[in-house]
């Protein structure tokens, strides 16, 4: 059975995962530049080795209060729709290899903003991981 690798992270206690193929790197960063008038989900801009990266606050995408941005926030930097974009998350987890066979569609109980961002679920040990649709998660329009 084919396996796929997922980079995992937590937002508000929920475990999410993105296909590692999309992930450029993971890092903590504390200096963000606010973008007035930008969509609410934009946490700010930061300088990644000379590249200007927009950070999308996953908490806002999930209908939660935004990150306070007053300290280091974890970034999962992805390639979505041909540009690098960062997802601001609460906590970084491990990279896990998962059987495609254990993939299941999102449960009916999953509702709200998260439903639109999730492709499906995987069972990992004693908890569920929600596989994120990268383009949808990074979409701030």
């Amino acid at each position: 059975m084919a396996t796929r690798q997922y980079a995992t992270f937590e937002v508000d206690g929920t475990l999410f995962g993105v296909d590692v193929a999309h992930v450029q790197e993971v890092l903590a960063f504390s200096e963000y530049t606010a973008v007035p008038l930008a969509p609410a989900a934009i946490g700010g801009l930061f300088n990644l080795r000379g590249q200007v990266i927009a950070a999308v606050d996953m908490r806002v995408q999930l209908g939660l209060p935004r990150h306070t941005m007053d300290g280091a926030v974890m970034n999962v930097i992805l390639h979505a729709e041909d540009e690098a974009v960062s997802l601001l998350v609460d906590k970084i987890g491990e990279v896990v290899a998962l059987d495609e066979g254990s993939f299941e569609p999102p449960p009916d109980t999953l509702t709200g903003p998260a439903r639109a961002l999730v492709l499906g679920t995987f069972k990992i040990e004693d908890r569920l991981m929600l596989a994120l649709d990268v383009d949808a998660a990074a979409d701030t329009r």
Partner: peptide, 11 residues
């Protein structure tokens, strides 16, 4: 000058 991501064009 760095180009700004298209998500801010509308602003």
């Amino acid at each position: 000058v760095k180009a700004l991501t298209s998500r801010f064009k509308e602003i």
